[in-house]
């Protein structure tokens, strides 16, 4: 389960007056909306011919703390995100998710698990999931009647 740590409301409740002076967010006229996805990690998924591509945002994660598993037509991404700076005296904001997470995605067809490839770069995990042979589109030759 993903631990959504303190909600913004709770952490703001803890913010001291001193911190208001030390560090305060600015909202200008062109402020942008808050971008917290419903589940971690946020995913983009699309079909590329004989494969599905899954692009997951996993900032701060490395190969050591990420797991990718495929079973049938299900993809599971799991891992743990830890940030433990030393000698923390006060936590002013905690908007980033931390702790262990697991997200399972059901794809439209069976996957050839042997041929799955994953690549991690700059906090983006890209997984290429080729469809199983049985799931590929087959063209049926129609012969003209002689």
């Amino acid at each position: 389960m993903l631990l959504n740590r303190l909600s913004p409301r709770v952490s703001f409740g803890r913010m001291s007056r001193d911190m208001d002076r030390l560090f305060e967010e600015v909202f200008g006229a062109s402020r942008t909306p808050y971008s917290r996805p419903a589940a971690f990690p946020a995913l983009n998924v699309w079909e590329d011919g004989d494969a599905f591509i899954v692009e997951a945002e996993v900032p701060g994660l490395t190969l050591d703390n990420l797991g990718v598993e495929v079973l049938g037509n299900e993809l599971t991404i799991s891992g743990e995100r830890k940030d433990a700076p030393n000698e923390v005296t006060t936590v002013h904001r905690r908007e980033r998710n931390s702790g262990t997470f697991q997200r399972t995605l059901t794809l439209p067809t069976e996957i050839n698990a042997e041929a799955v490839e994953a690549d991690l770069k700059n906090g983006i995990l890209t997984i290429r999931l080729p469809k199983a042979e049985t799931a590929k589109v087959r063209r049926i030759e129609v012969k003209p009647h002689e």
Binding site: R31, D83, R96
Partner: peptide, 10 residues
Amino acid sequence: WRPPVDVIET
């Protein structure tokens, strides 16, 4: 997008 942040004081 407005990215999520942690602000931690040591």
